[in-house]
Design a protein around this nucleic acid. Structure first.
Lengths: 344, 344
DNA sequence: ATGAAAGCGCTAACAT
DNA sequence: ATGTTAGCGCTTTCAT
């Protein structure tokens, strides 16, 4: 691989001039020098060593991306948007880490980022214990958090990008109410994260004057590809077991994966969706319209959110002093076929 | 961040001794020295700078992973397995790149890897033009290719990890034949990749003596999350339009995403699966059992394959001279509800 | 068994 | 406008 020195020799200039070209300080030289250097770079196919750069500057053009599991299509979609923006708009690459919701994995990933000279990370996590995140901040990491609102850490230096989960919950339950439902349930997995709490609060707010309940499924210890789907299935069985007159007629799923399992499970139990039970998902993943019946879901502007996260990382990297911000996006309802009037 | 120098001072030894500890050369020192150094490392929370290491050694503990789009759950599942093995077994991290099936994106990703000191990449690509891959090899990259068999590049230094696509195709069509089908179709997206070609050949081999056809849908220019699903939908419409007596009674989808679209499309067109038309998918993604009807699909040992890819990367990094190999995995049939006897 | 020192490829003062 | 040079934090030969 050609080095900066080779370029300098080839162009007949000093290495600092080449370095100046690389770092956009073209004003410091004549047009002619610039052209000679650029020609030499192209001729030799020179790409500066990021390792050497990082050693010098303490900084690599890489963003860490921490997801619970990239096998979950929701996180896959986010990762795709993040990588696209990071790469095309800023020439940053993305280092991926699955955390399986383990604090140790998250902490170790952040440690590795630091040792690689990576100074920023987008965290998609539901962990409530954030000691390791705070530690990262202290060590100079730029942290942008997805879907976790600025609660306890309002005073810290984390930027937050989220959907308004309260509104999302309210949209879901109001939609069911508008169809005449009188007994609603919110289906979720065990372990209350901030976003789930907000969804439930919104759900209840939208369902005022009507019977509501929260049903919770236990998650297996392994974080598999379809863990949440299995939770939905289990919850469906639980619902089906109850009498026709006591079970909910409308169910809001904490997310689409769980909703998909719920719908599959309900059908397995001989209940029809939406004739017997209506289901509203949350996330509006690309899969929502593909299952049968196509699932009504509360979605969010994913591409905008991903883009905001990346831009925020880049901005704060450039100026660590900018005040912390919270970016709250509006959810919207994608109506499909999984909701109808309740059975008589 | 603590540097090696700080550790040396803290432990009262020289830098080289610390370095020897870091690089597993414990035999060179007394037990007592080793312990002092280890204690100092722990005390200071020292993590060696990978940038400095890379600058010196020309090598980073990172594997590049090139996928068409991480939003495709199939690639998400592979990425999860790859990252898991790379991290837990070898302490390697994964740098992710979406290629959207563009040669430029692939080439630019590999360029970036090189400039980062990353010397290995797992390529999941269907591109037939592999000039950029060859170029990478020449520049010292270790390349492991997923699902692309060693055809033209048999002489090159690429390791291949694939399913036996011919067998997969044959399993699918034989399964339909066994159910009494007499008119089969293979549904695929435009653009013949090696793996698709093999699947089709196997499909035809398994369907000897019966009418077969290959139907092809055009893919949009954008590589969206659900491109292949849309192709499946379009193909479904095309099939439904044809007369009951001429259209195929059994369809094999080139992959599950297309199969999911096919099933959704068929139902939209008023055709029942499997009563009117049977569908067999390929990949056996975790979604296959979740749609309705649960889709029969030809699967593969994904975790084994991912693990093999990572191990191969690590092995070849350690010894570039090991002969190129092709790892061929056996497909298997996952029977579900999307296949039945053809209508009378 | 341990240490000294050169140098990996850059960046950015600081000369000139 | 251009060049010289001191490191950035490691690894690794080569001494001792």
């Amino acid at each position: 691989m050609a080095r900066i020195q080779d370029v300098a020799r080839d162009a007949g200039v000093s290495i600092s001039t080449v370095s100046n070209v690389l770092n956009g300080r073209a004003e410091r030289m004549t047009r002619e020098t610039l052209e000679r250097v650029e020609a030499a770079i192209a001729r030799l196919g020179f790409r500066p060593s990021q390792a050497a750069r990082a050693l010098k500057t303490g900084h690599m053009p890489i963003i860490g991306l921490l997801v619970p599991s990239i096998a979950n299509p929701m996180y896959g979609s986010i990762a795709r948007e993040v990588e696209l923006v990071a790469q095309e708009r800023h020439n940053y690459r993305v280092l991926l880490g699955n955390t399986y919701r383990s604090v140790e994995k998250e902490a170790s990933f952040i440690d590795d980022l630091l040792s690689h000279g990576v100074r920023s990370v987008i965290v998609i996590s539901s962990l409530t214990d954030e000691g390791h995140i705070e530690a990262a901040l202290k060590r100079g990491m730029v942290v942008v958090s997805y879907d976790r609102r600025a609660d306890a850490d309002a005073k810290s230096r984390i930027d937050h990008v989220s959907v308004d989960n309260f509104k999302a919950g309210r949209i879901a339950s109001s939609h069911l109410i508008a169809h005449g439902h009188k007994r609603l349930a919110f289906a979720t997995a065990a372990g209350l994260t901030m976003s789930r709490r907000a969804k439930i609060a919104g759900f209840q707010d939208g369902a005022a004057g009507v019977a509501t309940e929260v049903i919770e499924g236990r998650v297996g210890s392994e974080y598999g590809d379809s863990e949440l789907v299995e939770v939905g299935r289990a919850l469906a069985a639980q619902i089906a077991r109850r009498g026709r007159t006591t079970r909910p007629t409308g169910v809001v799923a904490v997310n689409d994966m769980l909703g998909i399992g719920l719908i599959a499970g309900l059908r397995e139990q001989g209940l029809r969706v939406p004739e017997d039970i209506s289901v509203v998902g949350m996330d509006d993943m690309f899969l929502a319209p593909l299952i049968s019946p196509a699932m009504t879901s509360v979605g969010m502007p994913l591409a905008d959110m991903a883009s905001t996260m990346v831009e925020r990382v880049i901005s704060r990297l450039a100026d660590p002093q900018i005040p912390t911000a919270e970016f709250l996006f509006e959810p919207h309802l994608a109506q499909r076929q999984s909701v109808a009037a309740p059975p008589l």
